[in-house]
Lab assay of single mutants.
Amino acid sequence: ATNIVGKVKWYNSTKNFGFIEQDNGGKDVFVHKSAVDAAGLHSLEEGQDVIFDLEEKQGKAYAVNLRIK
């Protein structure tokens, strides 16, 4: 899925991951530091509006192509 809109539920910059809540009511999506770095960001803030693509690997969904809304 592409261009999914959501809000950062939480992001832990020490542990380098967090979760994004989808605006469409879907399951929360894992986001890793690598996606944050690829977006040219240092971190994510709770409540921040983002747009992302959804990829699945080994049955787990995660956010890629992250951008600030």
Rank of each mutant, 00 (worst) to 15 (best):
A1E: 14
A1G: 11
A1I: 14
A1N: 11
A1D: 12
T2Y: 12
T2Q: 10
T2F: 08
T2E: 13
T2R: 06
N3L: 05
N3E: 10
N3I: 03
N3K: 06
N3C: 05
N3V: 04
I4W: 06
I4G: 05
I4C: 04
I4H: 06
V5A: 11
V5W: 04
V5P: 09
V5C: 04
V5F: 12
V5I: 08
V5E: 08
G6F: 01
G6C: 01
G6D: 00
G6Y: 01
K7S: 06
V8L: 04
V8F: 03
V8K: 00
K9A: 06
K9I: 07
K9T: 03
K9C: 03
K9P: 00
K9G: 03
K9Q: 03
W10C: 04
W10L: 05
W10I: 04
W10H: 05
W10E: 02
W10M: 12
W10P: 00
W10N: 03
W10K: 05
W10T: 04
Y11Q: 01
Y11V: 03
Y11R: 01
Y11S: 01
Y11P: 01
Y11M: 03
Y11D: 00
Y11K: 01
Y11T: 02
N12K: 07
N12L: 07
N12R: 09
N12F: 08
S13V: 09
S13N: 15
S13L: 09
S13Q: 10
T14R: 13
T14V: 14
T14F: 10
T14L: 12
T14Q: 10
T14I: 14
T14W: 15
K15C: 04
K15Y: 13
K15R: 13
K15D: 05
K15V: 13
K15L: 10
K15F: 07
K15S: 12
N16H: 09
N16W: 13
F17V: 03
F17P: 00
F17M: 06
F17N: 02
F17L: 03
F17D: 01
F17R: 02
F17H: 11
F17K: 02
G18N: 01
G18H: 01
G18K: 00
G18C: 02
F19A: 02
F19D: 00
F19R: 02
F19Y: 08
F19P: 00
F19G: 01
I20S: 00
I20W: 00
I20V: 07
E21D: 14
E21P: 01
Q22Y: 14
Q22A: 15
Q22M: 15
D23C: 06
D23W: 08
N24G: 13
N24M: 07
N24R: 07
N24I: 13
G25T: 11
G25A: 09
G25C: 05
G25D: 12
G26M: 12
K27C: 04
K27D: 09
K27H: 13
D28I: 05
D28E: 11
D28G: 04
D28H: 15
V29C: 04
V29F: 06
V29Q: 02
V29A: 07
V29L: 04
V29E: 01
F30M: 04
F30T: 02
F30N: 01
F30E: 02
F30W: 05
F30P: 03
V31R: 00
V31N: 00
V31G: 00
V31D: 00
H32G: 13
H32F: 05
H32Q: 03
H32C: 03
K33C: 04
K33Y: 10
S34W: 10
S34E: 11
S34V: 14
S34P: 03
A35L: 03
A35Q: 09
A35R: 05
A35C: 04
A35W: 04
A35I: 08
V36G: 02
V36I: 11
V36T: 03
V36F: 05
D37K: 09
D37W: 13
D37Q: 10
D37Y: 14
D37R: 12
D37C: 06
A38K: 14
A38L: 12
A38G: 11
A39W: 03
A39F: 03
A39M: 07
A39D: 02
A39V: 06
G40R: 08
G40F: 07
G40N: 12
G40Q: 12
G40Y: 09
G40I: 03
G40C: 05
L41V: 07
L41K: 10
L41Y: 06
L41R: 11
L41Q: 09
L41C: 04
L41S: 09
H42E: 11
H42Y: 10
H42M: 12
H42P: 13
S43C: 05
S43T: 12
S43D: 15
L44W: 03
L44E: 01
L44K: 01
E45H: 11
E45A: 15
E45F: 14
E46Y: 13
E46C: 05
E46G: 10
E46D: 07
E46L: 09
E46V: 11
E46A: 11
G47I: 03
G47P: 02
G47C: 04
G47M: 06
G47A: 15
Q48G: 06
Q48S: 09
Q48L: 09
Q48F: 08
Q48P: 02
Q48A: 07
D49M: 09
D49K: 12
D49Y: 10
D49S: 08
V50I: 10
V50Q: 00
V50Y: 04
V50R: 00
I51D: 03
I51T: 13
I51C: 04
I51F: 13
F52C: 03
F52N: 00
D53R: 03
D53Y: 03
D53L: 03
L54P: 01
L54S: 06
L54Q: 09
E55S: 15
E55N: 13
E55A: 14
E55I: 14
E55Q: 08
E56W: 08
E56T: 11
E56N: 09
K57P: 06
K57Y: 09
K57R: 12
K57C: 05
K57I: 15
K57D: 13
K57T: 11
Q58L: 09
Q58Y: 15
Q58V: 12
Q58W: 12
G59Y: 08
G59K: 13
G59E: 07
K60Q: 11
K60H: 13
K60C: 04
K60F: 10
K60M: 13
K60Y: 15
A61N: 13
A61G: 15
A61W: 11
A61H: 12
A61C: 04
Y62K: 07
Y62N: 13
Y62W: 15
Y62V: 06
Y62A: 11
A63E: 00
A63T: 03
A63D: 00
A63P: 01
A63R: 00
A63G: 08
A63I: 03
V64C: 04
V64K: 13
V64Q: 08
V64N: 08
V64H: 07
N65A: 07
N65T: 05
N65D: 05
N65L: 06
L66D: 00
L66Y: 00
L66E: 00
L66P: 02
L66H: 00
L66C: 02
R67C: 04
R67K: 10
R67V: 07
I68A: 14
I68V: 15
I68P: 09
K69Q: 04
K69E: 13
K69A: 03
K69C: 05
K69T: 05
K69F: 06
K69R: 08
